[in-house]
């Protein structure tokens, strides 16, 4: 029950209401839309070996969108392990993977708690699934590896009070980033994987404007579009041509099955692009 004795401030940040003084003012949306090609993902900066105390670590950030006020996603991942399982745990012939994703309290517009909320746990589960397909798990029996990702900054439009429903779509982008950065950190830790797994997001969006037809874009920023109709996040192994994790969200008409296929395809493409950055980064480290 809320504390009634004192006046509590709102849990999130608020913006002062700005009233429309002129009803007839034309809507101008320049400078807010997407300026990238529909198949282009944002530029990424990836660096491994950032945390000395961890077995492996990586830092990933997306380029700041220059059109909107969306700051880029910033992730840091640490991998601890492989280390022996505690005595209490039962025997495991494979490596026991545990992935934790946590938003920093200041990462999003809505302040996050210190404990993991269901959405973060959800991300962790997805991440674990994505990585499990990449790790050669039976090389380390009786051992465990902890993958801990902290989202330092989510890619949200912090300025406006408008895009309140975007959090669910932001999770997609966050997950794809998590997958990529975790893969880099695993490689940094020297844990054997069949391939580097990278995440990619494709979404069916509707842009503002009268002539807008829904279109498929990769790496969507929800605030750049009028509406996100559906999105899918894909974890993809390029050399093996395998998808380790697929997360679909949205409300697409069931009649057009091709739409799903296109979304997945674009998602794969996005993840492949992300993978290229990943491979380049790992190559820099080793060379």
């Amino acid at each position: 029950m809320a504390d009634r004795r004192r006046i509590n401030g709102p849990p999130g940040s608020t913006m002062p209401p700005v009233f429309e003084d002129d009803a007839g003012q034309p809507e101008v949306k320049s400078g807010k839309g997407r300026d990238r090609a529909p198949t282009a993902i944002r530029k990424m900066f990836l660096k491994t070996g950032v945390t000395p105390s961890a077995s492996g670590s990586a830092y990933l950030e997306f380029e700041k969108s220059n059109k909107s006020d969306v700051s880029g996603l910033k992730l840091s991942c640490t991998v601890h392990g492989p280390r022996s399982l505690p005595r209490s745990s039962p025997f495991s012939p494979h490596i026991v993977l545990s992935a934790h994703v946590k938003y920093a309290p200041f990462a999003t517009k809505q302040r996050r708690g210190y404990l993991r909320d269901p959405s973060e746990r959800d991300l962790g589960t997805h991440l674990e699934t994505a990585l499990r397909g990449a790790i050669i798990a039976d090389r380390w029996p009786k051992s465990g590896v902890d993958i801990i990702i902290s989202i330092i900054e989510g890619d949200q439009d912090r300025e406006a009070s408008k895009s309140q429903g975007d959090e669910t779509w932001d999770m997609m982008n966050a997950l794809s980033g998590c997958i990529t950065v975790a893969s880099a950190a695993l490689a940094d830790a020297g844990i054997d994987c069949v391939d580097t797994v990278a995440g990619g997001v494709a979404a069916l969006v509707q842009d503002a404007g009268d002539d807008s037809t829904p279109r498929i874009v990769v790496d969507p920023i929800p605030s750049e579009h009028e509406k996100v109709l559906g999105a899918c996040c894909i974890a993809y192994l390029p050399t093996r041509d395998e998808v380790t994790n697929l997360w679909f969200k949205g409300d697409l008409p069931a009649s057009d099955a091709g739409l799903y296929t296109q979304l997945v395809e674009n998602g794969i493409q996005a993840s492949r692009n992300a993978n290229r950055v990943l491979v380049e980064c790992l190559g820099e480290t080793t060379s």
């Binding site: 198949t39 660096k47 950032v50 950030e61 910033k74 493409q269 992300a274």
Partner: peptide, 22 residues
Amino acid sequence: AEPVQVPPVKKAQPSAFAQTLF
């Protein structure tokens, strides 16, 4: 295959935050 035009991915420059970090 689907003629998907993929622009070459270039690595972004680290942000001010990352620069401070590393």
